[in-house]
Design a protein around this nucleic acid. Structure first.
Length: 934
DNA sequence: CAGTGAGCGAGCTTCCGCTTGACTT
């Protein structure tokens, strides 16, 4: 609806429109929010969203602007040599949106940056400012709740941008980038490509691994107790239950041990004066108590009171949706997002439990109408913030609006209705009265036939006023635990009342290892440790699942052996970074920066370049840890997990985990939980046929032919019997013949016939120039060999069919000619303005590339052979030239002692010794943080 | 994890936090 200009309200105060003729552009973070706010602000305002952050450091090489490509720090996106100046680019998916914002701004006469009032929101506002470069007046607009009054108030009570908060955010961002982009490559080199490390995900992974370690170290303890059903003598069944259960708690005044009295090692805790009953003791006691007289020795009554739970924030919603609806963190957020976008609930990514005034009113009205005034407290309930680093830019998660719709009024169905109902109930319950009642503990005593005094306990709970429990009861992760609304009524008994035993039974138990994390409990743990943010909890789980650091077994998160290797590496070589307190300490620093009491730069400098720690000790910087210290990380050691009490080592290989005992190896199934890898299980794996498949006997040799899966893929080989012990060493060890399967074969279907054919290789083709010519299969595929000379063959089949004449022709041709000359350029382009050389696009092993005859440059993602312009080709070539010159090697270092072989393994070890020139940062020129500019 | 013989255009992977559609399979 177009704004009617003119009568913008001279008397103004109540007018929802804006004074003056022009319009103000208001930018918020979320489109759904923009829609709502636009309605509240009315004419004179155009409300648009930024859709989150609009700029960030480049994600990957393709996003780095050409002018920075050659910089040594371009890979990081942070100029570590110049005060950690970040390089910001508009995210590719935001380019068109930023353009739109610019267009809208051109129409406006004022810009209101109304992003969230937290660290990230302030930074988004600053980035908008930097990117939009407004020439009109700019103000920062903030609000904590989205109601008409609050929004209109906020529009007229603007402030300046808080640059200190922006600095805190930028410091956080830089640290996360340095951590992630410096440590991940260490994992690529030492463990496996494409792995990742980060401040949040690595700690999350470590938590899961540590829990598994606890489970592995756990020794269960067995203990027994006695359960009995007692009956009140002479009670009237009409008054309610006359029998009730009780459990043995003490014998002769000594408490009987229960689960919590044991250590994880299976022994009784040293500080516990308890008696551990074994089966014989428990059964014996039960027998001796048969027919014994019992009486009530004490009755203790305590008032019971329970207050409602706070309204939902992201983590508690995820936990309850998991317990009650069986939703994963990601599913919960997806459903909640839909509810939010369609106006059913408030924002779902929040760490706040606060309800706005209007929400309080709505909740209280609903309590009154649905449950009656008796259930309504005199004053609204206020919940203290539970989360330490809460930024509270939003409300709690609650039904939207000034009046709450009941679930049936929404017309929703399926998971959306169920989640809405959960949120609605929890919100309403949070404004109801406490549940009150009484809890009772009854102690019973009897004497056994051997004169032992046995003491039993019975507990009961009676709720006299259900209060909020009428609306909502929180779920539990432990299926054995009693829920809050569970009542247990005991018959009315008094001290001295006689009781008879209706039944009595000894029960055996064993202590259980700590439970594995679930998605919800891991998120809860992370939140308590101040690690991660509401917008990221679900994706943290996604990341560690994607990297295969954990897998799900039911709802449990099980760490992989890969996670053990990665965590082991990080703990041993980057201990500080996976310290559980790392983030908490970082938050302290960031808070100090936000308060203006500290600067980010010195802190980043120490983190990256090292320096004096808080205790005056020298702290090694990240840069040194990932470069000079790299050679200290032994990949073999890192990937090895000794199995305690055995000489078996579990190793994490490129093709999955396997066990190694003195060179004998066996694969470990990918889905084996680490705590299930016991000594016995390991032996079982070794005893199993190793997946080799016997194909039959070679009639020529009598040897068994088997198909196996090896390092280089599937292959066939033959089994050669070991010579008998006394037969001496004179018989020279015979090497078994081996051969890789052809590409057309597979391990499952290969036949003895195939195998014999393969084992017949190398085939003698004939003789040329006095040398034998053979056809065989090798590392790079099929080839012909003549002495030290060789030529590749086109197909595997040729190994069996190639004739001497064909071989002679091949050897007559120069090497390497195979396909190069055969392949004409894919496209011809014009001349490179830089060199004047003609450019062509060719097809190569790694896909299409452009070359000028000297320099070659692969096409990048998004480049299409048909659409490459001369300019783009020249750009690619220029970039390639700017990179480390492949030809002339700088002789800065001492000459290499030996010729480096091309073997990858050695390259790995010698990698990363970089010249440490110019590492020292020059003294700062100015003391002003870059982001503090006005 | 089986063990033989080239010579070549590499380039990319990855972090945490804000936010949604627009894409293809």
């Amino acid at each position: 609806m177009p704004a009617t200009k003119g009568s913008a309200g001279k008397n103004g105060s109540k007018d929802s429109g804006r004074q003056g003729a022009g319009t103000a552009l208001v930018i918020v973070e979320s489109p759904a929010k923009a829609k709502t706010i636009a309605g509240y602000l009315g004419r004179g305002y155009v409300v648009e969203s930024s859709i989150g952050h609009i700029r960030d450091m480049p994600n990957k090489a393709a996003e780095i602007p050409a002018k920075y490509k050659g910089e040594p720090w371009a890979r990081l996106g942070v100029n570590v040599e110049r005060d950690f100046e970040p390089l910001y680019v508009v995210n590719t998916d935001k380019k068109s949106h930023v353009r739109k914002l610019k267009e809208l701004m051109a129409e406006a006469d004022e810009l209101l940056l109304a992003t969230d009032e937290d660290r990230e929101g302030e930074a988004i506002a600053w980035h908008l400012l930097e990117e939009l470069k407004p020439k009109i007046p700019v103000r920062r607009m903030v609000f904590n709740e989205i109601t008409k009054e609050a929004i209109q108030r906020a529009a007229h009570n603007t402030r300046d941008l808080n640059t200190r908060l922006v600095s805190a955010q930028e410091t956080r961002r830089i640290l996360d980038r340095l951590y992630g982009y410096e440590v991940s490559p260490v994992l690529w080199k030492k463990v496996m490509p494409k792995l990742s490390a980060g401040r949040v995900q690595s700690v999350a992974t470590r938590l899961v691994v540590e829990r598994e370690r606890e489970r592995m170290a756990f020794t269960p303890a067995e203990y027994w107790d006695v359960k009995a059903l007692f009956e009140v003598v002479g009670a009237d069944a009409a008054d309610g239950p006359t029998a009730f259960p009780a459990a043995l708690v003490a014998v002769d005044g000594t408490r009987v041990a229960v689960g919590r009295d044991f250590t994880s090692g299976g022994t009784v805790r040293s500080d516990r004066a308890v008696r551990q009953l074994d089966e014989a003791a428990a059964r014996g006691l039960t027998e001796r108590l048969e027919g014994a007289d019992f009486s009530v020795s004490s009755v203790e009554r305590k008032p019971y009171r329970r207050s409602p739970y706070a309204p939902f924030r992201t983590t508690t919603l995820q936990q309850e949706a998991s317990r009650k609806l069986g939703l994963s963190a990601k599913q919960t957020m997806q459903v909640a997002q839909r509810l939010y976008e369609n106006g059913y609930i408030t924002y779902m990514r929040t760490d706040s439990t606060t309800l706005s005034e209007s929400a309080l009113g709505a909740a209280r009205n609903q309590v009154r109408s649905l449950y009656g005034a008796d259930y309504l407290p005199d004053k609204p309930r206020v919940y203290a913030k539970k989360v330490k680093n809460a930024q509270e830019a939003h409300e709690a998660i609650r039904p939207a609006g000034d009046t709450f719709r009941t679930p049936s009024q929404t017309g929703l169905s399926g998971p959306e209705k169920r989640l809405y109902e959960l949120i609605w109930k929890r919100t309403v319950a949070s404004q109801m009265k406490d549940a009150v009642g009484e809890s009772v503990t009854v102690k019973l005593r009897g004497t056994s036939s051997a004169g032992e005094t046995a003491e039993f306990n019975a507990t009961g709970k009676v709720i006299t006023f259900h209060g909020f429990l009428k609306a909502y009861v929180e779920g539990s992760d432990d299926p054995a635990a009693d829920l809050d609304d569970r009542e247990r009524r005991l018959p009315p008994v008094a001290e001295g009342d006689p009781l008879t035993v209706r039944s009595m039974e000894a029960e055996g138990h064993s202590t259980r290892p700590p439970a594995r994390y679930t998605e919800a409990s891991l998120v809860k743990e992370l939140e308590e440790r101040e690690i991660g943010r509401p917008s990221t909890y679900a994706s943290i789980i996604g990341t560690i699942l994607d990297r295969e650091y954990v897998f799900k077994k039911g709802t449990a998160l099980v760490p992989s052996f890969l996670a053990f290797a990665v965590v082991q590496l990080l703990e041993r070589h980057f201990g500080n970074l996976v310290d559980y307190e790392f983030t908490a300490r970082m938050e302290d620093v960031l808070d100090a920066i936000a308060r203006g009491e500290a600067e980010g730069l010195p802190w980043l400098r120490r983190f990256y370049f090292g320096g004096e720690g808080s205790e005056g000790e020298r702290e090694t910087g990240l840069k040194e840890l990932v470069s000079d210290n790299l050679s200290e990380i032994d990949p073999k050691e890192i990937s090895s997990l000794p199995l305690p009490g055995t000489d078996i080592v579990l190793r994490v290989g490129r093709y999955g985990p396997y066990l190694d005992r003195d060179g004998t190896r066996v694969n470990v199934p990918d889905d084996l939980a680490p705590d299930e890898l016991t000594k016995e299980k390991a032996e079982e794996l070794f005893a199993q046929p190793s997946g080799d498949r016997e194909l039959g006997t070679d009639p020529a040799t009598g040897r068994t032919v088997v198909a196996k899966s090896g390092r280089f893929g599937p292959y066939v080989t033959e089994i050669i019997e070991e010579p008998e012990e006394g037969e001496g060493r004179k018989a020279k060890a015979v090497k078994p013949r081996t051969s890789s399967l052809l590409k057309s074969m597979s391990l499952d279907t290969v036949t003895l016939e195939d195998a014999l054919k393969l084992l017949s290789l190398p085939r003698v083709v004939g003789e040329l120039d006095g040398e034998e010519v053979t056809a065989q299969n090798g590392r790079f595929g099929p080839y012909l060999k003549k002495g030290t000379d060789s030529r590749s063959l086109e197909t595997e089949e040729q190994m069996f069919t190639v004739t001497l004449e064909e071989a002679e022709k091949l050897f007559a041709q120069p090497k390497q000619r195979g396909r190069r000359t055969a392949a004409p350029p894919l496209r011809e382009l014009g001349e490179d303005p830089a060199t004047g050389a003609k450019m062509v696009i060719k097809d190569g092993r790694f896909g299409p590339y452009v070359t000028d005859g000297e320099v070659n440059a692969s096409l990048r993602k998004g480049d299409e052979v048909e659409k490459i312009t001369d300019e783009r080709a020249a750009e690619l070539l220029a970039e390639r030239r700017a990179k480390a010159p492949a030809k002339k090697k700088a002789p800065a270092k001492k000459p290499a002692a030996k010729k480096t072989t091309a073997k990858k393994t050695t390259a790995k070890k010698t990698a990363a010794k970089k010249t440490a020139a110019a590492e020292k940062a020059p003294a700062r020129k100015t003391g002003t943080p870059r982001s503090a500019e006005d």
